[in-house]
């Protein structure tokens, strides 16, 4: 008990440092606040991982997040209709005002994910901390989840794969999508896309715990207007956008 309290105090201290950082160099430290849990402990529903993507900061031609994701997860980076794309840059043009912008699109890690509802074998599931994943051991490759996903976030592996990353197993005949870099989160790190975006100096992707009122992301969504894509569906997405 004592230990957890210490952790908490330590964490609060760190977040105030983070806050100071926020004042000096907005965004610089934001992605660092992900706190890992001890090895061997199960993911807890006290945490809900999410991302806030600032459409205004996202640069149109930049695809650093996509490249980082491909490298991190061992994706080929191909863009044929049969290639997997876990994250993609979408170019938007408002039909009425003509405003042009771009944003990264990936699995939105819904609280009520349609892919989990329709999966016949429970291979699509939501982890306690809100990350939506595919258990490739039980996925039979029926692709019903691809049909059900409102965000076109899922890909089906069409070919035999070799040389997968040890932390990111993927294989022919199963469905996959953004894992929110679960292997990094479990080590207390941030996602590859958020890291790459910060490295490029855009800081458009803010990753963190939506449930922790002290986290940078929670503070930010309290302060600014953010949107869920297809909010009408009532899925309560973990990935939110500002400035669309």
């Amino acid at each position: 008990m004592n230990e957890t309290n210490l952790d908490r105090r330590d964490f609060l201290a760190k977040s105030s440092v983070g806050l100071a950082g926020l004042a000096i160099a907005p965004g610089m430290l934001l992605y660092d606040l992900a706190h890992g849990r001890p090895l061997g402990e199960a993911a807890s529903n006290k945490v809900r991982w999410g991302m806030l993507i600032d459409n205004n900061k996202c640069e149109s031609g930049c695809t650093d997040c996509v490249t980082a994701c491909n490298t991190e997860n061992g994706l080929s980076g191909g863009t044929k209709p049969t290639d997997s794309q876990w994250i993609r840059k979408v170019q938007l043009k408002d039909n009425f005002t003509g405003r042009i912008s771009s944003l990264p699109m990936m699995c939105q890690h819904c609280e009520h994910p349609p892919c989990v509802d329709v999966c016949p074998t429970q291979a699509s599931f939501k982890r306690a901390d809100g990350i939506v994943l595919v258990d490739k051991h039980t996925c039979i490759g029926c692709r019903y989840c691809v049909m059900a996903c409102p965000y076109q976030a899922r890909s089906f592996v069409h070919e035999v794969l070799t040389d997968q990353k040890p932390e990111v197993p993927r294989g022919k005949g199963t469905v996959e999508s953004c894992t929110l870099c679960v292997h990094r989160i479990d080590k207390g790190e941030t996602t590859a896309c958020a890291e790459a975006c910060a490295k490029a100096g855009h800081n458009a992707i803010l990753f963190g715990d939506l449930n922790d009122p002290e986290s940078a992301i929670a503070k930010r969504i309290r302060a600014v207007t953010s949107t869920q894509i297809r909010a009408d569906l009532g899925l309560n997405t973990g990935v939110r956008y500002e400035g669309i």
Partner: peptide, 13 residues
């Protein structure tokens, strides 16, 4: 996905 917008992407949006 984005009603009211014209969209394009590498994934066929």
């Amino acid at each position: 996905i984005f009603p009211g917008y014209e969209v394009s992407s590498s994934f066929g949006d």
